[in-house]
């Protein structure tokens, strides 16, 4: 360990020297930006704790208090994204130490990227850390144990077999009706066998179509990650992809100034976070008591809000003005 530290320390020293040398000889315009130099081991093994040191300097001066991140290219179920595996902040010598645990049995391209505080873009530092082939990786890309022949096809075969026998039995019943058809007397004008064949073929066809649809659409993963856009569900967030929240402007003052106290109250009810405990429509939830039907007089409501009974936060005049409180009260009263 000590040896490794000395080694990485030596590397850092060399890197700094190299960086300083480069800074001295390159164009001053480039040198004005922040430079990243990195010290990291060349080879690691799975399960090892890896220390990566980033050195940030600007015009040869160490940059203090800069945020950096170590990222690598990850892929899961066909999706590829850049994932942060460690972050760090530089100290007064401009060095940020980032530690991560090597889990995968191979690393893609790794980068040390500058996160802030400056807004100017900084060229990321690209590095490669090889992984020793020995040892399994610590997580699996696919879940479960694959047993030959125990799969969806077997399920389909079993279900098909059962439905074949049901169908066979129904065919015998249809033949019963068929056999009696010619000898039909006046009292039985219909071909009575038709209903059962119709019923059975309908059910069988619907079920068969259902099975085929499900089977064809059944994806390889458990998350439908390949085809999420067809799903009317919560959007799936990918690693490394930011999701912009498009919401309702609760903090916009004008949204609670419509002139209708009930409409304003419904906005304020969310704005002040009442809904978090008392439920979306004030009917109570796990933590908060129901408000709608048990609200009582405004005096009591106001007192409770200001004092915060049973562990509830206190909301004083500075937080919720009397006017806004009356609007919330109007809204809750209207809901009841």
């Amino acid at each position: 360990m000590i040896y490794r530290h000395i080694l990485s320390g030596a590397r850092i020293a060399i890197s700094i020297l190299a960086a300083v040398t480069i800074l001295m000889i390159v164009d001053p315009a480039v040198a004005a930006g922040i430079e990243i130099a990195v010290g990291a081991p060349d080879t690691v093994s799975v399960g090892q704790e890896v220390e990566v040191k980033a050195v940030l300097s600007q015009n040869g001066v160490p940059v203090e208090g800069a945020e950096v991140a170590l990222t690598y290219q990850a892929s899961l179920a066909g999706e590829s994204a850049r994932v942060e595996i460690a972050t760090g902040t530089t100290d007064e010598t401009g060095i940020a130490v980032m530690i991560y645990e090597q889990r995968a049995d191979a690393n893609g391209e790794m980068q040390v990227v500058y996160l802030g505080p400056d807004a100017d873009p900084v060229e990321p530092y690209v590095l490669t850390i090889a992984v020793e082939s020995a040892g399994p990786q610590l997580y699996e890309f696919e879940a479960g144990v694959k047993i030959p022949f125990v799969n969806g096809t077997l399920v389909i075969l079993v279900i098909s077999g059962v439905w074949f026998l049901i169908g066979l039995s129904a065919v015998y019943l249809v033949r019963v009706g068929w056999d009696g058809r010619g000898t039909s007397e006046a009292s039985t004008p219909e071909d009575g066998s038709m209903w059962i064949s119709t019923l059975l073929s309908t059910v069988a066809v619907i079920t068969a179509i259902g099975m085929v649809i499900v089977f064809i659409r059944s994806p390889v993963s458990n998350t439908h990650i390949k085809d999420p856009h067809q799903y009317d569900r919560t959007p799936i967030a990918y690693v490394g992809v930011g999701f912009s929240y498009v919401g309702f402007g609760l903090n916009d003052e004008s949204s609670a100034q419509t002139g209708d106290p009930i409409a304003d109250g419904s906005v304020l009810y969310f704005k002040y976070g009442c809904a978090a405990c008392h439920g979306l429509s004030g009917r109570g939830a796990v933590v908060g008591a129901p408000l709608v039907d048990e609200i009582g007089s405004f005096g009591g409501f106001s007192e409770d809000t200001r004092e915060g009974p049973k562990g509830m936060s206190e909301y004083d005049e500075a937080t919720i003005s009397e006017e806004n409180l009356q609007k919330i009260y109007a809204y809750l009263k209207d809901e009841g």
Partner: peptide, 25 residues
């Protein structure tokens, strides 16, 4: 009754077929 009794006349062939259907089910 007419529909559900699928033209049952109790002929030997019908009895055989019905027996098979019941046994399978």
């Amino acid at each position: 009754y007419r529909t559900l009794s699928v033209n049952w006349k109790g002929s030997p062939k019908q009895q055989k077929l019905l027996g098979k259907a019941i046994t399978i089910m």
